[in-house]
Design a binder for these strands. Structure first.
Lengths: 136, 136
DNA sequence: GTTTGACCTAGAGCGAAGTCTAGATTCTAC
DNA sequence: GTAGAATCTAGACTTCGCTCTAGGTCAAAC
């Protein structure tokens, strides 16, 4: 059940590079120390992959490595700090919602510009475009 | 009408630092060369501020400096390339929409985790939480 | 007229998040 | 049993987007 995976397997399963996986380990982003085979190669299991997939989501949504490290440390240090983990995740959720709102606001502005340019390209209207070289 | 603004005024109006404004100029992100006063100080006008405010939106929505530079170059080079500007803006708009979709997907996962932790903290359920230290 | 603060240029430095290199070792397939 | 692929460690290097420093000059207030 605890199938053992090489670093290459894990890279393939998570989309992270083998370099990144070694980097993550140095940064202590795993929930445990990754054990080594007789020959010194890293031996991962499915739980490591599952954790990395969550890490990917957190990273993609803008969580800095430093925060991920704090979260990993909380989980690693065992039961008792669930309220802290919850607070960290809630704070990140707030951040993501805020970022979506910010992007949505930008999108309105950008789409407005696109619309202006579309009109211009289609029928030569110039309102809202920048002049060749403004001022003197 | 062409009121003149100091670099400090523009920094205050745009939220950019004076360092950033000088950096933008070195990178040729303005629509024109910023003129200097007799004493060598930069003299901006309202159109520069307006442009920077759009730049801010583009940057906040994830446009890299390099792309902004290309856009500025297109605008600077005058009329005739509006279809290129339109394509650049459309491409960016696509990127922003994709990013919002990605964040929204992450949000679902994160909110799921938050929910699991909320249940755990409120009534001691442990499903979906990580064990203290997994495996041997 | 001097002090204080804003501004100048050129260029070095920084934090984030990996990526890449070198040189050695191990594992897999023939 | 050997060729070639994958992995190992340690540490240097890269890119992005500014930020900061040094060593001055300029401008506004008193």
């Amino acid at each position: 059940m605890a199938e053992s995976l090489s670093i290459g397997d894990v890279a393939a399963a998570t989309g992270l590079s083998v370099h990144a996986l070694r980097f993550f380990e140095r940064e202590r982003l795993f929930l445990r120390g990754i054990p080594r085979s007789a020959g010194g190669h890293r031996v991962y299991d499915a739980a490591d992959v599952e954790w990395l997939l969550l890490c990917n989501r957190l990273r993609e949504s803008g969580m800095p490595i430093a925060t991920l490290k704090r979260f990993a440390a909380l989980v690693r240090s065992g039961p008792g700090n669930e309220p802290d983990r919850l607070e960290l995740l809630r704070e990140h959720e707030r951040g993501v919602r805020a970022r979506i709102a910010e992007l949505t606001a930008c999108l309105e502005v950008i789409h407005g510009k696109v619309t202006v340019y579309e009109r211009h390209v289609e029928d030569g209207t110039a309102a809202g475009l920048w002049a060749p070289v403004p001022s003197s």
